[in-house]
């Protein structure tokens, strides 16, 4: 889970979930606490789904929030 997916790709990461930014990968000070939690819960869930998904090449898993 990282923001700079290009770097992750370069070093060979196979499963990537994009995060919000470098200083707060799974937060966002501009959101209300409830919304911030929803974002973190969602993206962490995408990462869990990614772990259970077979891929054949480097893959960025899309997020909705």
């Amino acid at each position: 889970m990282c923001n700079l997916t290009n770097i992750a790709k370069t070093v060979g990461v196979n499963k990537m979930v994009p995060t919000v930014s470098v200083p707060y990968p799974l937060g966002n000070p501009q959101l209300r606490p409830d919304d911030e939690w929803a974002l973190r819960y969602h993206r962490t869930g995408v990462a869990l789904d990614a772990l259970e998904t077979d891929v054949s090449e480097q893959t960025i898993f899309p997020v909705k929030i």
Binding site: P23, Y24, P25, L26, W37, R40, Y41
Partner: peptide
């Protein structure tokens, strides 16, 4: 600032 306020934004242990 944000990580110190809530370290879960970096390591999502709460989620």
């Amino acid at each position: 600032e944000q990580a110190d306020r809530n370290p879960n934004v970096v390591v999502p242990l709460d989620a």
